[in-house]
Design a protein around this nucleic acid. Structure first.
Lengths: 201, 201
DNA sequence: CGAGTTCTTTGATGACGACTCAAAGAACGC
DNA sequence: GCGTTCTTTGAGTCGTCATCAAAGAACTCG
């Protein structure tokens, strides 16, 4: 019987190290050496577990996408009232700034999604799950009568997701274009107008 | 008297070559060699005109930002009616897809804006000019009575700009999340709700 | 406990890329 | 033409990714 392999666990450690390396140095500057150092091993060892740095980064993205979706679905579940759910989901989707690791990671790795279909597929999955989340909230609220949707819920949901993405892009820049409260105001304004329901607290 | 320098003209050519190189290979893969080849000169010559590839790319960004702003301001001037102006500006701001060179360029180089304040400053300038453009249109329309703004024009304008950015991000991926018509619908829906004015043609 | 198999680590090596630099070459004013 | 200045070049340096073969560690089974 073969000696048991610890590769799975090791790969997990490397994904975590790579994640940190991207946050530290940015996707443009991250080196195999950075990952190796963070994981306290040689560069050769890193490549024993992943064929290339690119493959490792892909796994980083996959994990980040998954965690982001789960976190938000979790945040939404905390509330039962559609209005509260909507506000909470909006707040959970906007990055808190450059320190918001998960969001920064997704934007950093987004550079690959522009050229690599596999990366793009993850982004699509991410986006669609969020659209589904918002759509469900909107439709529940519409059924209850809290929300008065002037159009189909999917269009509104897509808008919310894209708006978060756009605002997040600005919030995570070296020098942000807006403050977080300004971004929140924009998003709440959108949601208020689209649902014809007073949301702003 | 010193021999006249052609450096300015040469730098312009190099910026154009670098621009194309980024579009061809992506910001993650662009090499000095690509730029040199496109400009039909040696890599050493490129570095005679720019201290490093990074400095050259920065100039590419500066030009792209400027051109984007000018193009849109131009597009808005084509109409006098605020409603038409708004629709036209919206259409001009959304990328047509991966082939929309100016937009792709801005997104590609956006990777630098997350870490380099000089890049971020350009993005801020870009954003603020667009916000100003939309704000002017919205306020004119409000004064005329065509638009009924439920809140301050700046918040709406910021939302339009961020929404374009977010939608554009998805439209320029290797595999887009939405189609262009879907994105346009989202944007027009937002504008319609915010202005309480029927825009969709 | 020890042999044998399998898993893991490593550093040497090759290929490639950015950037430096000194020297050659071209263009212009005088 | 002459001399100055601008431009081009490619060789050399250094740092990086990725391949690979050999050494080392860990575990199973007899």
């Amino acid at each position: 019987m073969p000696r048991p392999s610890r590769a799975h666990h090791r790969r997990g450690e490397l994904i975590a190290a790579a994640r940190q390396a991207v946050l530290d140095r940015g996707v443009l500057d991250v080196r195999l050496r950075d990952v190796a150092d963070l994981a306290s091993m040689s560069t050769g060892s890193v490549l024993y577990y992943f064929p290339s740095l690119g493959d490792l980064l892909f796994e980083v993205q996959r994990e980040a996408v998954e965690r982001f979706c789960v976190d938000r679905e979790e945040a939404a579940r905390q509330e039962s009232d559609p209005r509260g759910k909507l506000v909470r989901t909006i707040r959970a989707g906007l990055p808190s700034g450059k320190d918001d690791e998960l969001c920064v990671l997704l934007y950093e790795l987004g550079a690959y999604a522009r050229r690599d279909p596999a990366y793009a597929a993850q982004h699509i999955r991410l986006c669609e799950r969020q659209v589904a989340l918002y759509t469900a909230i909107l439709e529940t609220g519409a059924a209850t009568g809290v929300f008065d949707l002037g159009r189909d819920a999917t269009t509104i949901a897509r808008g919310l997701v894209a708006l978060e993405d756009g605002l997040g892009l600005h919030l995570t820049q070296a020098v942000p274009t807006f403050t977080v409260p300004q971004a929140e105001a924009v998003l709440l304004a959108y949601a208020t107008d689209a649902t014809r329901c007073e949301l702003e607290a």
